[in-house]
Amino acid sequence: MNKKSLIFLGGLALWTLFPAAGHTSLAATAKDNYRTYCAQCHGLQGNGRGVNIRDMSVQPRNHTDASYMSQRSDEDLAKADRKGGLAIDKSVLMPPWGDTLSPAEIKDMVQYLRTLCHCTFNSQ
């Protein structure tokens, strides 16, 4: 077996073992976006305790709070993300991210929020 074949087979074996390597997974992308845009207020841990909160008149949502987050539909979360707090009758302090994140990234972000709260929408 020549050298090129060995390199090819080695690469194939690595790709088989680590299928996510070489592209960014959905969760990692949303996680990166969260760290960049959301964490400044919602906190590095998603607990609503970001570096900016001390003087805010309305405190940011705790995204790990399953009892609250399960009361918000995916559509509501996406709307708040895209258009800001005022669009869902919440605080102006939550800005619109529709010019920063693509519709696909906002969709992924909603799924990421569901991983933070370990919850799904429960309309009951």
């Binding site: 590095l44 305790r49 970001g50």
Partner: peptide, 19 residues
Amino acid sequence: PAGEFYADHVKPGPERDMV
């Protein structure tokens, strides 16, 4: 106040993330 990139200069604190 939190440098550039801000999240690299912030860490979780007892009440909130701190610079």
